[in-house]
Design a protein around this nucleic acid. Structure first.
Lengths: 235, 235
DNA sequence: GAAATAGTGTCTATCAGACAGTATTGA
DNA sequence: TCAATACTGTCTGATAGACACTATTTC
């Protein structure tokens, strides 16, 4: 990491540690789950933690570092990735002044690779209960995870964000079920469809339907240029 | 900065630079304005920039560092302070891999000290036009400033955030005027008051009124335990 | 009383949700 | 034809905003 020193900077030894940590969420077995990795080395060796790592000189950006972590630890590419916030103070890491930039990633359960990246054995999915997870997490990761879950739940109320938890093609009943799971309440079918229709971000996949012993549902996909859309009102 | 080294960390020379930058906004002369400082040293010497600085070993946290910057550069304490997000990549600072944690602060114009901190001569207020400011800013600060303004404008639509731009005691017409300035549209008085009343975050200051040649308005202040409240609907 | 702004009441068009009805498939 | 679920139309209670009205002060 060349530093031309065209101005005064803190001495290297006085620079804080900088990491990225990613909360990776998916829907499996009808529940929201987070991917955690078991730490192999101190500090907090043996504890479960959010996938993360130090910023390296060859990272191109913070988001690039988050994508690298996502690929290394979970074998996942190009999902929904959003910056959550940064957490830093003098005490959160025994190795010194440390800050982490936290990200939230959402992926569809059909895009989970059979292997979870290089350290497959040390990574596994944990169901979210309330705003936390069964094991005690390393560092301040419980706080970060809670913030990530809060952010996602809040956005479900007024955005199209849950489409990122579904496969590329899905039916409107599928989508409504995801909203209902995340919000933990029933939605009226008619009102739900009015909301989805008015923001106009889906397009039908013609000629394809889903098999069952009843009227099949239309399949839809998000329009090519889609970015998360905000509803006028809460959903 | 002691580092007990209880685990592997990047070599000091490979650690990125870490700063905080604060977008400080107020309402002066009926317009939204941002406090900028002129850089004395390279890189970008002579350019205007957001007040900011490196994380120092004696900072207690990221937010603590932001408050230190606020005090040093603007002589301001305990305003509304919110983390905006982090920006970091290999190229944004010629001195090396650099990341900054950006904050947004709001203050009432009556709380602006006559002196703007230690470097009073080098700091001044600039009116916001659209999502930017007249001078070319240092680093990627124009992008950060635009994000800060976007965040504040968005929150005005559905939160009580604008109270932080008013003195401790204010009238409802005062508050409505702030909303109208920030949203750049007229609001209906009756509907506005219904919204304010239903979230119930203000209390009347009895016996005090404002002098004018007409019916005086009731003075209000935010309730002691107030945190920014979200409206059910957009305002 | 006039002027000016603070504050409140009422009316109505709109609309979100409840609910019932129709559509389409397999068995 | 029945069962099951997809999908749509209609009705109604709630309400946001338009607007008019009353209140309170100085001159």
């Amino acid at each position: 990491m060349k530093q031309p020193q065209t101005g005064p900077v803190p001495a290297p030894a006085e620079r804080p540690l900088l990491t990225v940590d990613v909360t990776i969420l998916t829907l499996r077995d009808d529940s929201l789950q987070a991917l955690l990795v078991r730490r192999a080395e101190p500090p907090h060796a043996g504890r479960w933690a959010l996938p993360g790592g130090f910023i390296r000189p060859d990272d191109i950006s913070l988001e690039g570092a988050a994508r690298r972590v996502l690929l290394d630890k979970a074998g996942i590419e190009t999902p929904y990735l959003e910056q959550l916030g940064s957490y830093g103070d003098a005490k959160r890491d025994p190795r010194g002044w440390s800050a982490t930039v936290a990200y939230v990633a959402l992926i569809a359960s059909d895009r989970l690779e059979p292997r979870h990246g290089r350290n497959a054995d040390a990574a596994s999915w944990w169901p979210i209960v309330g705003t936390s997870v069964a094991p005690t997490l390393a560092f301040d990761h419980a706080r970060i995870l809670a913030a990530a879950i809060g952010r996602v739940r809040a956005k479900v109320e007024y955005t199209t964000l849950p489409v990122h938890l579904l496969p590329a093609k899905f039916t409107l009943p599928d989508l409504q079920r995801v909203y209902e799971q995340l919000l933990d309440r029933k939605l009226d079918k008619s009102a739900f469809r009015k909301r989805i229709a008015e923001v106009d971000f889906l397009e039908p996949v013609e000629g394809e339907r889903r098999a069952a012993s009843n009227r099949p549902a239309q399949l839809w996909r998000v329009k090519p240029d889609h970015r998360t859309v905000f509803f006028d009102r809460t959903i």
